[in-house]
Simulated assay, not measured.
Amino acid sequence: MKYQAELKDDILFIRLEGDLVAGTDTQQMIENVDKEQDGKVLLCAVDLSNVRFMDSSGMGVLVSLLTKFRNRGGELVLIKPSNHIRKLLIVTKLNAIFTIAENDNFAAQFLKESIY
């Protein structure tokens, strides 16, 4: 899995590509997000549009990120998950805790409204 993190208008956009599965790269991503942002960023959008496959540990990564941001008083939103990922979220009932946005603009609007 590859990822890019970009801070834009006080929102951390994390763009994932490939397979979101257990591995050192997923754990390293979580650690790097914490280290780079030093716990100061409250809003996060995770772009899943280029994620081909996700297993239970990948879902754990998303839940871990969501928990980190909510514990800070912030929020996290998922951007454009594939049909496969959407079905996984529904089957696991994680669709009840994640907000799904269709694009960056909707994600940013939702996140900014969530803290005010």
Rank of each mutant, 00 (worst) to 15 (best):
M1T: 06
Q4F: 11
E6C: 12
L7Y: 02
L7G: 04
I14H: 01
L16C: 10
E17A: 09
G23H: 01
G23N: 00
D25V: 13
Q28M: 11
Q28E: 13
M29K: 03
M29I: 06
M29A: 10
I30C: 09
E31N: 11
N32I: 10
N32Q: 15
Q37C: 13
Q37D: 08
D38V: 15
K40T: 10
C44T: 06
C44N: 06
C44G: 03
S49E: 09
N50E: 11
R52C: 09
F53R: 08
M54K: 02
S56C: 08
M59R: 00
M59V: 11
V61K: 00
L65D: 03
L66Q: 10
N71T: 12
G74T: 04
G74R: 03
G74S: 06
L76G: 02
V77K: 05
L78A: 05
L78S: 01
I79G: 04
N83L: 11
N83E: 11
H84E: 14
R86F: 08
R86E: 13
K87I: 10
K87L: 12
L88I: 13
L89C: 01
L89P: 01
I90S: 15
I90W: 14
I90F: 13
K93G: 07
L94Y: 09
N95C: 03
N95A: 03
A96L: 13
F98R: 04
F98K: 04
F98Y: 06
A101Q: 05
E102P: 04
N103M: 09
D104V: 12
D104G: 02
F106K: 12
A107K: 01
A108I: 10
Q109I: 12
F110N: 10
L111N: 00
S114F: 05
S114V: 05
